[in-house]
Each structure stands twice: as C-alpha cells, then as structure tokens.
Design a protein around this nucleic acid. Sequence first.
DNA 1: GTGAAAGCGCTAACAT
DNA 2: ATGTTAGCGCTTTCAC
Lengths: 328, 328
Amino acid sequence: MTTARRPATLDDVARTAGVSRSTASRVIAGTGFASPIARERVRTAVDLLGYRPNAAARALVRGGGVRLLVAVAGTSSAVLDDNYVDQVVSGAARVCAPHGLGVAVQWVPLDTPRRLTELTDDRGVAGLILVNTITPLLDLVPPRLRGRTVSIGIGSAAVPSVDIDNGGGTDAIVRHLYASGRRRIAMVTGPPWLTCSHRSVEAYRGLLRDAGLPTREVVGDFSAARGRAAAREVLRRWPDTDAIVGISDATALGVIGRLRADGVQVPGDIAVTGFDDIPLASVTAPALTTASHPVRAIATAAATVVLEKRPVPTRTLFPSALVRRDSA
Amino acid sequence: MTTARRPATLDDVARTAGVSRSTASRVIAGTGFASPIARERVRTAVDLLGYRPNAAARALVRGGGVRLLVAVAGTSSAVLDDNYVDQVVSGAARVCAPHGLGVAVQWVPLDTPRRLTELTDDRGVAGLILVNTITPLLDLVPPRLRGRTVSIGIGSAAVPSVDIDNGGGTDAIVRHLYASGRRRIAMVTGPPWLTCSHRSVEAYRGLLRDAGLPTREVVGDFSAARGRAAAREVLRRWPDTDAIVGISDATALGVIGRLRADGVQVPGDIAVTGFDDIPLASVTAPALTTASHPVRAIATAAATVVLEKRPVPTRTLFPSALVRRDSA
DNA sequence: GTGAAAGCGCTAACAT
DNA sequence: ATGTTAGCGCTTTCAC
C-alpha cells in the first residue's frame, strides 16, 4: 500500500522488482520479451507500489497523443447542445478513462471544413471521432490519424464508419404503418446536408414507390419545434394524411403536440412514429412507436475502434428495431 | 501556412523567431519576462508555423496532468447512463478542448469511496469534478488536487461546490401549488443518500410546515419508472392528494403516466410538477410545469473553475426558476 | 532580458 | 532475455 507521497514511477517499480527500467517497461506495456520470473516480479512491484503509468510521458515519447477528439460538423456551435452528441462524448469518455485518455469535443463549421485541420494539427489528439460527417470532411483527416479515426455516420475508403442502420429501422416503421392500413404516409426528414439521414428517406421512398404510393416529404431538423411546424405543413399540403413518420422522437413529439392542438387524434386519425427510442418515449401520451437507436453502444464501439486501432470493417451497422407502442 | 508534415515544435518557433527556446517558451506560456520585440517575433513565428504546444510534453514537465476526471458516485455503474452525467461530461469536454485537455468519466461505488483514490493517484488527472458527492468522498480528494477539484452538489471546506439552487426551485414550485389552491401536496423525493437532493425535500417540508400542512413523502430515484410506482403509492396512502411534486421531470412524467392510467385528471384532479425543464417538458401532454436546471451552465462553470484554478467562493448556486406550463 | 542546461517519466533502438 | 543509451517537447532554475 503506497503510504502517501509522490506516485510511483517506472523507476521505482524497476528498482523494487530488481530489474532495469526497460524490462519493467516491456512487461508493463506488454511489448517485447521478458522472462516469466521478471514478469512476475514486475507485476508484484506494480501493485505493491500502486503504480500507474504516466499518460503524459507515454504520449510524449510515443507521439500518440493524449485525448480523443469528437468533432461535430454543423451549421452552428449549437450542434454541441445536443443529447446525441452528449451521449457520444460521454460514452467515449467512459471507454477512454481506463486507458488514461481523455475526450474533447469541438464544433466544425459546415462551411469551413478546413477548420478541422487546425484541430487535428494538435499533437495531443490521439484519435478522432467524426459526427454528422460530410464527405469533404472525411478527406481532410490527416495521414497521422489514419487508422485512428472513425466516423459515426458516413465513412470513406480511409475512414471506417460505425452507424445505426436507419434505413432498416425506417423500413420496419413504414412497413408497420402499411400493415396497419395506413396508405397516405408523410415523412418529416432530417436536414438535407446530413448525408447519413438520407438512408431513412430512401427507405421511406423505396417502400412507398414499391407500394405504388406517393411520397409526402417535409424537411425537419430533429427538433420538436420543427416537428410542430412540419405537422402544420403536412396538414396544409395533404389534409388526408393518415400517418407521419418523424426522423426522431423529438420530431414525433412535436408533431403529436401540434396535431393534438388541432384536435387531431393520434393514432386514431393520424399515426405518428419517431426514431431513437429515447427513455421518455415510453412515458409520453400516447407512448411512442419508434425504432431503437443504441447511441451509447455506437459511441462505445467507435471509441474502441479508435483506441485499439486494429483493422476494422469499413462499415459497421448497428441494427435498429421497431418498438411498437401506442402512437402508431 | 504550414505546408504539410510534422507539426511545429517550440524549437522551430524559437529558430524562426531568432530567439532561444527559453524565450519562446516564456512568451508563449505567458510566464516570465520578455522584451516587446522578442514577444512580437515569437508571436509572428507562432502563427506563421501554426504552432500548437504539445499538451503531453507540457503536462510531463509541469506535472499538471492531461485530463479532467469526472467522478460520479452511485450504487452501480449505471449512474453513468444518465443524461445528467452526459451533459456534465460533454460540457466539461467543450471547455477543456481549447486548453488541450480531455475529459474522462468514471464511476465511484458508493460503498467503496476509497476507489476514488485509485483514480486520483493517476498523475494524468489534471483536475476533478465530483458528481453526486457524499461527504466521505470529499475528504478523499488528495492534496495534489486541492484547488483543482470542484463538486457539483455538496462541497466542503476544501472543495468548492457549484450547484443548482434546488431549494429555491422547489420553494417556487410548492408556493405555486399552494397559490393555486392545492393543500394536500405529496412529494416524490430523490434517493436518501444523495445529500444535495435534501435541499429540495427540506424546502418542501419547510413550506408545508409553515402552512400547517402535513407532508406526504415517497422515496424516488429520478427515474420515470420510480415515478410511476411512487404515484401508485401516493394514491394508496393518501387518496385525497391534490398535487404531486416530482424530484425530476422524468419522475413527474412517470407520475403523470400512472395517474392517467388510473383515470386521474392532470392537473384537474391532481397537479404534477417536475424539476429540470428538460427540452421535452414543453412537448409532453400536458406540458410540464417545472423548475429550470441549467446543467450545462453548471458543468461549464465547474470545468472553468478547475481549469483556471483561481480562488472561488466555497459555494456557487445557480438559480432555478419556476416554469409554468399546464401540468400544475 | 535572455540563453544554457537539466530534467519530467517513459519507450525504443541498440547492444550485450 | 535484459540492460544501456538516447531522446520525445517542453518548462524552469540559474548564470550571464
């Protein structure tokens, strides 16, 4: 038990283990050779002294950097005020903690993607998680960070992506709507620039086309406020709509709020669906029919990919499952 | 414009500025003396080269650490799966980013507070933000981190606290209820061990006592599920209840869900209030009457205190304002 | 006011 | 298999 004082250094460990620093370093870092005896003695010394490698020193010599950067693209820095981003950052921070790494989050202006370069020029950046990416951004990832970058959203040849299968989730939702007899189905989409939300829209279009049904699209932005406005627009343009697919749970909640204010019954007159399955989705009235979106698991996977920097598939899709509740 | 390659080091800056490393270091770190001319030349060199100090090297020599640790106390690691924690971590990460620092988050078991010591023994920890603290934890903060620790919740002589004025918020809520004619007011509290939630309960008790009204308390845990169960319990124990104060918005939503399932009108039969003013509070049906809780601002303040490590008041309370909507 | 020199704690050749 | 030797990039006495 360390009595008090200065945390133990590698030197202390080596000394008490009766080996050289190099040997101690090898067994601790798990790199290079070491005899079983040496290994054992070092191990003992380590937890006798309560030794914890100094992340800064390690990063300095290896040039590995000391924090994971979560770079979020968007039109304003307000993109950072988002529960989705919070979850990604927090999830990554959780994975990083045991590795002696931290997480930082910064906004990358959509119209000035090269701002990303300033961020990644910093030697302290050990890895990069891109959120809400667009292609120009992907191409700006510096060679130094190759293999240590992952995108939550669309990827590229050089940047693997980890994402939700929103196409599949939307597919399940629209099928459910269709199966329940809905035929005049509208959709409140995400912002057009956000490439990864296109898959949802495409799933919606594909299904309706196959069914010989016309599409009814209104642009949204994931927020409840836009959901409200979108609902009004849908009602105005297509008064006979019998279902509205929201791009997010917040959107759906906004839609429902607006509909109710207009005296429209949900799901009686119009069925409404969300996407995300936020914790509150089961508590609202009516409880939301939606599709799951395991953001936390995705963030964890993304951070893990960056930390372990071992080869990964270009694209990992987390399944999205239909969650049937009362709103549709 | 740096053309490509290896990021500039302090040596590069010194060389192009025609001064010694020491001088360059002084002007960049803003420490020590330097002639205006030297200062100027270094400045120029810095942005000519796009120089960014290497956080790891800096941390190594100064022993300052390289990441902020958010330590969250709780009964299980599930405390980390919480929107509140997410916001704190994300907010802190945002503040840290420009300083070349990262954020890590870890759980501290409530029954093994000394686990905190293992975390803070790490030289990489530049500062500490305690969340959901209890007194034993406060006393475990090592001297090394004095002045670089802040608690979101209760504090101590050695650890300043930054927190929400939940006493004030609850006060406003209960007064509002009373003013609307409610007299049989129940409360769903937070977990008893969580000291900082006591202030809410005390405000509730104080007001009711002053009004000569009996208290009706049920233990909750901030979750909607507990809110549901608590609502049932309230109804069973005090069937004539006409208002329920929830310790959080999620709690209130759970309460409302349960009440509605039982055919109870909200706010007609029973008024229900939350606490937090989450984004969805205005979208639910009925829209939630609640008290604001600027978690993000609090997290930002906490991280700032830690980073700037300048003397701060022992206790900073962020005001909580009543937000009147439809549920009460 | 400025520079020379000595590390911070660790890893990675390079011997041995 | 293990030890010796250089640094990684920066800050900071300590002389000048």
